[in-house]
């Protein structure tokens, strides 16, 4: 690695670690949420941007992670075990569902993943005896990695930040590895990859499972963070929000989706304090995003961003806008 790149990464990690110095308590909580959602959105960005699998049911895996922690924490209190259980469960479900879904592509894949997510939503909603139904469930177990319970917002921020950085660098390594390169090749040209001798289904299945595991991990952390879970975590609206975060942040980039997540979570927090009509606003954002194109979105995002910055401190110091040319065309395939 070049010296500048190393310096950039050191700065990135340092900035993440030093951020609490300038954050209020509320800012810490919000940033922790951003980081957790960012991991989830990054996992979706992985399959959309690098494998060309556009899913509208990715919240399923986030929800599975969260529900695993919530349901098992009634019997087990070891945080490590619960996290592993969440990741493994989400991974297994992703693997098995991927086994069936990955044969289809494009609109079919989208519809099937949507139906799958809604199926889990319906189950969580209706199995009141187990999942608490529409009311959801409280998660009372505290987060404890063996150094005592982590209860302060600052401590949890560091947990979220460490997890986020770990996921980010894991994905970086993954994408530069032979397997990751293969996945990108499949998105570029699947028929050629097959002709070259790649078992493309296996690659897609692997990356889909990895993505599901990461989403499950994010969901598990979210259960601890929010101390409450509900079927909304599985709902297609949440999947759709994640999709839009990926697109706003930049398809085909790693950090882009994370930035999209930051933008949306903060925007939602901001707007929700004024009006309950967040779905309308989000819907309008979708429509504007589609109609006014890529450059426009990034432009729009940066405008709103600077507006936000001037109105109140949002806690994020650097706004790295996504690269040009990372929009919809790259989604086709």
């Amino acid at each position: 690695m070049k010296k500048e790149t190393v310096a950039l990464h050191v700065a990135f990690v340092a900035a993440t670690m030093l951020l609490p110095l300038i954050l209020t308590s509320y800012g810490l909580k919000l940033t922790s949420e951003v980081l957790i959602i960012a991991m989830f959105v990054m996992s979706l960005g992985l399959i959309i941007g690098f494998a060309g699998l556009v899913s509208l049911g990715h919240a399923a895996f986030f929800g599975i992670g969260a529900y695993t922690v919530a349901l098992i924490s009634e019997h087990v209190d070891n945080t490590w075990l619960l996290l592993i259980a969440a990741v493994v469960t989400a991974g297994i479900v992703a693997f098995l569902s991927g086994l069936m879904f990955i044969r289809s592509s494009g609109a079919y894949f989208l519809m099937i993943t949507l139906a799958f997510g809604q199926m889990l939503y319906a189950i969580a909603y209706k199995m009141e005896g187990v999942t608490g139904g529409a009311d959801g469930k409280a998660v009372s177990e505290s987060f404890n990695l063996g150094f005592g319970a982590i209860e302060s917002r600052l401590a949890f921020y560091y947990v979220a930040a460490a997890a986020f950085l770990a996921c980010y660098y894991l994905l970086r390594v993954f994408l530069s590895s032979p397997l990751g390169k293969g996945v990108r090749g499949i998105k570029e040209n699947e028929s050629r990859m097959t002709a070259l001798g790649y078992n493309t289904h296996l690659y897609k299945l692997t990356v889909y499972s990895l993505s599901g595991m990461m989403a499950g991990f994010a969901g598990a952390l979210y259960a601890y963070f929010n101390q409450y879970i509900s079927p909304d975590l599985l709902h297609w609206m949440f999947s759709g929000q994640a999709l839009i975060m990926v697109i706003v942040g930049g398809v085909g980039t790693l950090l882009g989706p994370a930035i999209g997540a930051g933008f949306f979570v903060i925007l939602q927090n901001y707007i929700s304090s004024y009006t309950e009509r967040w779905p309308i606003i989000m819907g309008l954002l979708f429509v504007c995003l589609v109609l006014y194109g890529r450059g426009g979105v990034i432009h729009l995002a940066s405008l709103v961003w600077s507006h936000l910055q001037s109105k109140r401190r949002t806690g994020r110091e650097k706004s790295v806008l996504p690269k040009e040319g990372s929009g919809f065309e790259s989604l086709k395939g």
Binding site: V173, S176, S177, P178, L179, G180, K181, G182, Y198
Partner: peptide, 9 residues
């Protein structure tokens, strides 16, 4: 090593 995922290309 086409399935390896821990070492850069």
């Amino acid at each position: 090593y086409r399935f390896h995922f821990f070492k850069p290309f």
